[in-house]
Design a protein around this nucleic acid. Structure first.
Length: 679
RNA sequence: UGGUCUAUGGUGUAACUGGCAACACGUCUGAUUUUGGUUCAGAAGAGUCUAGGUUCGAGCCCUAGUAGACCAACCA
């Protein structure tokens, strides 16, 4: 009953709700997703796809897929196909498949109209000359000498441009707007350029091609898109978008509105087609669909599901600020999905031989294993069991200690879905490496038998495979492609400097239970206790290759790894997207939290304030003496900084003396202590 | 030296017309568990960038700063 009360809206939805409230007819709502077919879609595009198509679903409005194909030099049919495949795979249906190139004739006609109205002219300068006249963001531009060319002349030249009479780069059509506009895009932007390249759809019909700005808004208008949503870097284009619409707008038709949202970034990867292309071209990855790539096709190959990506987009949300979403959110989404759906199987990646000495030689039996404990009706599959098995090398220690819930000498564990065993002895080679573990099993303890022995509590449960029955396969494990959280955010280093050399680990000889011989590309598996896996497209008959999608959450591994600096709360690191702070700001930032700290944390914070104080001046600090009484933390920080300055020889002003005296009389113990330290 | 935009726990987002700063991830406990998974119960973590102002009351409104992003392709 209590369903979706007070569901919070993102700012785009607020805008739409507002428009609806102001009388915009709901049935006129229409959206579009407008990729340029010059690369593969990535998880950032997924945000836009889910936004636009999600809005379509929410308001029952059509959503067009429109390829923004105005530059034949970069665009290819391969990309069109890949983009359609990815969107369909995500589970979205477009109302119409459109292309900006569908509107080339209409765009051309409108351009002629602009020339006739004196709003556009043909220029014939070099790109250098035009760039020089354009000015800079802080200085106005200057008019082209051809700006006031007679209309008839522009009309004639433009037609001859279209007819292919001129070389590429020799002539341009420009809008006549304002060369001194503070908005660079309004300084007589280019509408058309000559490009002598065949277009993937129009072939050689045209040798002039419209620029993005001239094509995009008009395409929205032709399609009667109500809300044209794009990323923030197009904000400055909006004025031009509106200016173009002003020139051609017929008030009986719907007028599209552009709105901008922030692109979504993911930690430990890059999210620009140019950079992803570079990874592909430099063979750092195997292709656009390399499972380490943040592309939709890479994620699909890795084993991500459409649901998980849609869920991620949903959870991450839409806003207008810079962001770096933690990849752990994406991993949460895929684990949540796969936990409910993946078939449980067993595979051993780093094997050591286990011999059950009291199990009859030559005997084997078929055991039943649950396909998915999260789904009561998911059934079981057969798993062969025998005297000689493989288990993971990490699952055995001669003397494991109290917190080791696995196999060790003299201790019992359960073999998943099989029997309880006890390790008796080990066989080592001359260098001390364990070759075999010998154990005994309790024949009464068979899983599911219901016997008392089978219900015995033991220290842990291990996965295993029967050596005789196991199939061999290659398994590929992936780690983050970059070692830095935001590899492309550094001024002094390029993103390629942060490549993780160990992002791919190939296990060429993993042993898997025979059930996996029938795996298909659509199957999703959980290799128990290891993670989620899916078949890779490199698999051939007789040689299966599995990709590790993501590991299970591993609290055991966490206990054994010293706390990584990246996981610690960051007090004063400058890795945030907002960048580096000034020393004084940083002191304020740290100080705020001072009253929440104690012990080592407090000491660390105080000493980093002292260090930062070396870099500030008394003049900067003095205004903070007036800090409100309740902001104790800030006053402590200021006190520490003041002490540092005084120790460096700063004269004690009357304002400082008063601040110190007040500190000594304060209720707060820490503040009093810091004040007392000053002589 | 211009214009535009942004600033809320470690991260990502909410907070409707100004009214107890909420949710998710992550982190930490505990319970359950034939996956050190899942599930369940709980905890810590925010002076809402700074300084002023308006107001009975400000994350929200006003002023002034600070920091970051975007803008000068015949790319999109």
């Amino acid at each position: 009953m209590m369903k979706e009360t007070a569901e919070s809206l993102n700012f785009i939805e607020h805008i739409i709700e507002e428009d609806l409230k102001n009388g915009f007819p709901k049935d006129k709502l229409r959206f579009r997703f407008p990729p340029e077919p010059n690369g593969y879609l990535h998880i950032g595009h997924a945000a836009s796809i889910c936004l636009n198509f999600g809005l379509g679903e929410k308001y029952n409005a059509p959503v067009n897929l429109r390829f923004d194909d105005t530059n034949p030099a970069k665009e290819e049919q391969e990309y069109v196909d890949a983009i359609k495949r990815d969107i369909a795979w995500l589970g979205f249906q477009w109302a119409n498949e459109c292309y900006s190139s569908d509107y080339f004739q209409q765009l051309y006609d409108w351009a002629i109209q602009l020339i006739k109205e004196g709003m556009a002219y043909v220029d014939q300068q070099t790109s250098e000359e035009i760039a020089a006249q354009k000015g800079t963001p802080t200085t106005a531009g200057t008019d082209s000498p051809f700006r006031n060319r007679p209309i008839e002349e522009s009309l004639d030249l433009f037609e001859r441009m279209k007819n292919g009479e001129f070389a590429a780069g020799s002539y341009l059509l420009r809008a006549k707007i304002d060369m001194s506009s503070p908005n660079m895009h309004m300084r007589d932007p280019i509408l058309y350029r000559i490009v002598n390249k065949p277009h993937h759809r129009t072939g050689s019909d045209w040798c002039i091609y419209p620029m993005y700005d001239w094509a995009h808004g008009q395409s929205d208008y032709v399609e009667q898109v109500s809300h044209s949503l794009c990323t923030l870097e197009f904000k400055a284009h909006r004025e031009l978008y509106d200016w173009y619409l002003d020139q051609i707008y017929d008030s009986s038709l719907l007028r599209p509105k552009q709105r901008e949202f922030a692109r979504r970034n993911l930690s430990y990867t890059v999210m620009s087609k140019r950079k992803l292309l570079e990874l592909v071209q430099k063979n750092i990855v195997s292709g656009w669909d390399d499972p380490r790539m943040p592309t939709i096709s890479g994620l699909r190959r890795r084993g991500y599901t459409p649901d998980s990506i849609r869920k991620f987009s949903d959870l991450a949300g839409i806003s207008k600020r810079d962001n770096v979403t933690d990849v752990s959110l994406l991993e949460f989404c895929i684990r949540e999905d796969l936990n409910k759906t993946a078939t449980r199987v067993m595979g051993v990646l780093n094997p050591v031989k286990l011999v059950i000495t009291n199990y009859p030689e030559g005997k084997s039996e078929i055991l039943q294993m649950e396909n998915n404990p999260e789904q009561a009706d998911s059934g079981t599959h057969d798993v062969p069991f025998s005297r000689e098995l493989y288990i993971e090398r990490e699952d055995f220690k001669e003397d494991g200690g109290k917190k080791f819930f696995r196999l060790s000498l003299g201790n019992e564990v359960r073999l998943k879905s099989a029997y309880i065993i006890k390790a008796e002895s080990v066989v080592k080679d001359e260098s001390g490496v364990i070759q075999e573990i010998h154990c005994t099993y309790d024949p009464e303890s068979k899983s599911g038998s219901g016997t008392e022995a089978s219900q015995r509590k033991v220290k842990g449960t291990l996965h295993w495979v029967s050596i005789e029955h196991a199939i061999q396969a290659e398994v590929r494990e992936y780690d983050r492609l970059f070692l830095d959280e935001a590899p492309d955010s550094h001024e002094d280093k390029g993103f390629l400097d942060f490549i993780n050399p160990e992002s791919l680990k190939v296990i060429s000889n993993a042993f898997l239970e025979p059930h996996l011989a029938n795996a298909t590309m659509d199957d999703k598996y959980q290799f128990q206790r290891l993670g989620y896996f899916t078949l890779d497209s490199d698999s051939k008959d007789g040689k299966l290759v599995f990709n590790k999608t993501v590991g299970l959450k591993d609290t055991w591994a966490k206990q054994n790894t010293p706390p990584a600096p990246a996981n610690q709360p960051k007090q004063n690191q400058n890795s945030s997207p907002q960048g580096q702070k000034k020393p004084l700001n940083e002191i304020q930032q740290i100080s705020k939290k001072l009253t929440n700290f104690s012990g080592d944390k407090l000491e660390t914070a105080l000493s980093s304030i002292a260090t930062l104080a070396e870099e500030i001046s008394y003049d900067e600090l003095e205004p903070l003496f007036n800090t409100a009484a309740k902001k104790v933390g800030t006053r402590i920080g200021v006190m520490v900084a003041l002490r540092v300055l005084l120790e460096k020889g700063q004269e004690k002003t009357s304002a400082a003396a008063e601040f110190i005296a007040n500190g000594k009389a304060d209720d707060n113990e820490i503040l009093r202590a810091e004040a007392e330290k000053i002589n």
